[in-house]
Design a protein around this nucleic acid. Structure first.
Length: 293
DNA sequence: CCGCGGGCCTGAGAGC
DNA sequence: TGCTCTCAGGCCCGCG
């Protein structure tokens, strides 16, 4: 499910209910997420106070007063739901739902301020991990991540450098979290569309030549930033699983120009192209073959 | 080192 | 209604 805008939406939803609160009780209803939760997972959290919430690429970080960090990833289908009325009486995803929506609530945080925060993840590709703050830099899951696309260090020169030696397509390069961290299939397609660049183009063609800045890299960086900011403003994209922490839908799917729009007219003014779907590196790519070159 | 394909899981939707 | 098949916002790992 979630790419950077969805994870950031979740972070913003969790922050007001977690920051300053204490984990009173932690329920681990299933231990077999992407990696098994450690046996002492709940015990290490209980009693801890949350000093802040952060995000690195598609990872959420919960800073604990103890100096440990709770690192969480939503995988493909993970979501968090906050309730104040008590966990068991929390409404289901759909009105007709009986308490089976509990089936995929694998971890529940009962906070000292009365908030109940349930992590739901049908496909169990998500993960949670506790790491001492001092060892965050060497954490294997974070270690190889490239720059934050909305951060100050990410610019055309950096993107150009990261793509220089790449033999793959531009699409595959942007999905590579070492090049830039936080994009997934939707936002790569949308950013390439906005930058008018073909997903099939070799990644190395956005690299600089003879030290001169490459206008393609400049456009791409701007397109990436714009699409991510627009998506965050809309609360992310809700296709299947993504919800805001209050259960409301994200709305950015209504602004897709190409993603999941195979066969439709290209929305760009005066472009008469038709959106195509191709498969690259095993994933669907949507693009306009006329205006994306 | 790099790039690719498989695999991890469940559920939704299409087609028969 | 029900079965089978394909596909899905991600990412680790092993192979060549």
């Amino acid at each position: 499910m979630p790419e950077l805008p969805e994870v950031e939406t979740v972070r913003r939803g969790l922050e007001p209910v977690m920051q300053g609160a204490r984990f009173e009780r932690v329920e681990t209803r299933r231990h077999d997420l992407r990696w098994p939760l450690p046996g002492d997972f709940a015990a290490r959290l209980e009693g801890q106070t949350v000093s802040g919430l952060g995000r690195r690429a598609k990872y959420l970080t919960v800073d604990l007063a103890s100096g440990e960090v709770l690192l969480m990833h939503l995988g493909m289908s993970g979501s968090f739901r906050v309730s104040h009325e008590g966990y068991e009486r929390r409404p289901g995803k759909y009105h007709h739902e009986q308490p089976q929506h509990l089936t995929h609530d694998h971890v529940v945080f009962h906070m000292s301020n009365g908030a109940h925060i349930a992590f739901n993840d049908p496909r169990r590709f998500g993960c949670m991990k506790l790491i001492p703050r001092g060892r965050l830099a060497e954490e294997p899951l974070l270690r190889a991540l490239g720059p934050e696309p909305l951060g100050n260090t990410f610019d055309a020169a950096m993107l150009a450098r990261a793509c220089r030696a790449k033999k793959t397509s531009l699409k595959a390069a942007l999905l590579d979290q070492r090049v830039v961290a936080g994009l997934g299939n939707i936002y790569v397609c949308e950013a390439l569309y906005r930058a008018r660049l073909s997903p099939k183009r070799r990644a190395s063609t956005v690299a600089s030549r003879a030290g001169a800045p490459n206008p393609r890299a400049v456009a791409l960086v701007q397109a990436i930033r714009d699409v991510l900011n627009d998506a965050i403003r809309a609360g992310g994209s809700s296709l299947r699983d993504h919800r805001r922490t209050d259960g409301e839908l994200g709305l950015f799917q209504h602004q897709f120009a190409v993603y999941d729009r195979e066969g439709e007219r290209c929305p760009r003014r005066r472009c008469h192209g038709t959106i195509r779907r191709i498969v690259q590196a095993g994933r669907s790519t949507f693009f306009c073959p006329v205006c994306q070159r």
